[in-house]
Structure formats: C-alpha cells, structure tokens
C-alpha cells in the first residue's frame, strides 16, 4: 500500500468537501450518489489505477468507467487531486464552456474514458475495453462503477450475461449500493434483490463489502486481481449522501444542490471530520 488507511480517509474527506463546494457553485447536481462512492474512487485512483497526468491517456493504463454518470463530481475532484486536471477547474462544473459537463463527456474531457450519464451503458463499454486487452495480451485492468438504481436497466444484464462468457478476469464491476434513487428506495421503486445471488447465478465472482471501509474495498480489489477465468462484481454497500448528516440516507438529496446555508452546515461537519482525522495523523507521527 502506498498510503495508510488514515491518509486515504483524509483524502476522501477532502474530496467530499470539494464535492459540496462544486455542487453549491454549480447550483445543481447529485450530492447523494457523489458522496456515496468517494471511498471506492479514492481506493481505486490512489492504490490501484494510480492515475497521474503522465499515464492519464497511456494505452496501457488501467481504465475506470463511471457508468453512473451523475456521480461525476466525485470523479472530477479525484482527477484534480491526482493532478490530471487543474484543481481550480473543478469549480467550473456545469458552467458554460467548461470541460466539466454535468455528466461525463469524453468529447470535452478524454480522461473520463467514455461519455456516460444515460444509465446502463458503462459496463458494456468496460467489457469492450477488457476484451481488447485480452486480444492484445495487455495487463491493464478495467473497472466500472455502476449505481444500484442503474441495475434496473436491461443493458446492464446483457453485459452481466456476456462478460463471463468471454472470461474477462481483467474486468471488475462495482455497484455503489446506496439504496436510493430519485423516486425513493431502490427496494420500493424496483427491487434488485437478491443481487448477490443473481450475479453469482450469472457466473461472476461476487464480493460483498462495506463500500466506506477502505480495508474491505482494497481487499476486494486485491481478490478481484487474483481470480482467474471470470470477472468480479463487488457489491459495495454504501450510504447515500455519506459524510453530511442531513443528506445521509435521504433521497431528497439525490439530485439537488445545497444552497449557501446548507453548504455552510455541510462544510462545517466535513471540516470537523477532516480535523479529527488530521489530529489522529499528528498522534501517529
């Protein structure tokens, strides 16, 4: 591991602070699903993909496809913290002439790998990249992050059916299972359970984890690398709006930006969390 768990937690909290600031400035966007996937992205981009400005478009790079495109503020913040895009640029989110479209656009920003946001399409794209890796005998891995509501799309299940056929052990799908979608709880809108059983029945290697626990995320990603002959699906249980108390598990915050007052409260909470982590770090030293 390059970073300690504490370091990763600090990075994740800084990213949450940026997400809140970005959405407040944009005046619209999706806090719930951006905040829920932060640990997954940080684990991937700091410990696995290790994205840098130099390798950001390298043909042999590990790929990350954000199929749940509305979570893109988290990805932009991650790319900025990795130095791939200028930090100040993240505050142009959703503004005219910005590369940072409301949902990922490869036309505007090639580092997002694919244009997504119309749900259900990312896993097929990730599969195609993984297939090319197999043909070319390359060692790169392909990660795809899906939303739980997104699992209601038919195309997702077409891809779930096909990836094991091609034995894509270089493909790792992760579902950010935050239990919420626009109209309410996933279980009420259109239940996707029993999800783990379904994925196993389609012949995936399935790992169920707490998607906010770095040790569990990293150990699942390690296991995915070791499994041969089949793709891995990580079912990551998360909390929608994680980190901001009034947003947590509240689907009202699926697609609404915080106003100035709400932003102040949210940032105060997150900064307290950050200070707590930083003081822990001081103690370690």
């Amino acid at each position: 591991m390059e970073n300690s768990i504490l370091d990763l937690k600090i990075i994740a909290t800084k990213i949450r602070i940026d997400i809140i600031k970005m959405l407040n400035l944009a005046g619209s966007g999706h806090p719930g699903g951006s905040l829920s996937c932060v640990e997954i992205l940080v684990a991937l981009f700091w410990e696995k993909i290790k994205r840098t400005p130099e390798n950001a478009l390298d043909p042999d790079r590990d790929r990350f496809i954000l199929s749940k495109g509305h979570g893109v503020p988290a990805l932009y913040a991650v790319l900025a913290h990795r130095g791939v895009i200028p930090y100040e640029e993240i505050f142009t989110l959703r503004k005219i002439n910005s590369r940072l479209q409301g949902h990922p656009s490869r036309l505007d920003l090639p580092y997002v790998e694919a244009s997504t946001g119309s749900l259900g399409q990312g896993l097929s794209i990730a599969q195609g990249i993984a297939l090319a890796g197999k043909i070319d005998k390359k060692n790169y891995r392909v990660y795809c992050l899906l939303g739980d509501g997104e699992m209601q799309e038919g195309q997702v299940w077409e891809a779930i059916m096909s990836a094991p056929k091609f034995k894509l052990d270089n493909l790792c799908a992760i579902v950010d299972y935050n239990k919420g979608q626009i109209d309410g709880y996933v279980k009420d809108v259109m239940n996707i359970e029993p999800l783990v059983d379904k994925l196993r029945a389609f012949n995936w290697n399935v790992i169920e984890i707490d998607g906010h626990d770095f040790e569990q995320i990293l150990s699942a990603l390690d296991e995915a690398e070791l499994i041969k002959g089949k793709p891995t699906f990580i079912v990551a249980h998360t909390i929608k709006g994680k980190g901001v108390s009034f947003m947590e598990d509240n689907h009202e915050w699926h697609g609404k930006a915080p106003n100035d007052e709400e932003t102040k409260i949210a940032l105060k909470e997150l900064e307290e969390q950050l200070n707590e982590l930083l003081s822990q770090k001081m103690e370690v030293k």
Binding site: I125, A126, Q127, I129, L131, A132, D136, A159, S162
Partner: peptide, 10 residues
C-alpha cells in the same frame, strides 16, 4: 456498447 469499448482501446 462493447464495440464502443473495443474502439476506445484501439
């Protein structure tokens, strides 16, 4: 979609 991914990988 798979074709798109293959294309993105060259």
């Amino acid at each position: 979609g798979t074709a798109a991914g293959l294309a993105l990988a060259g």
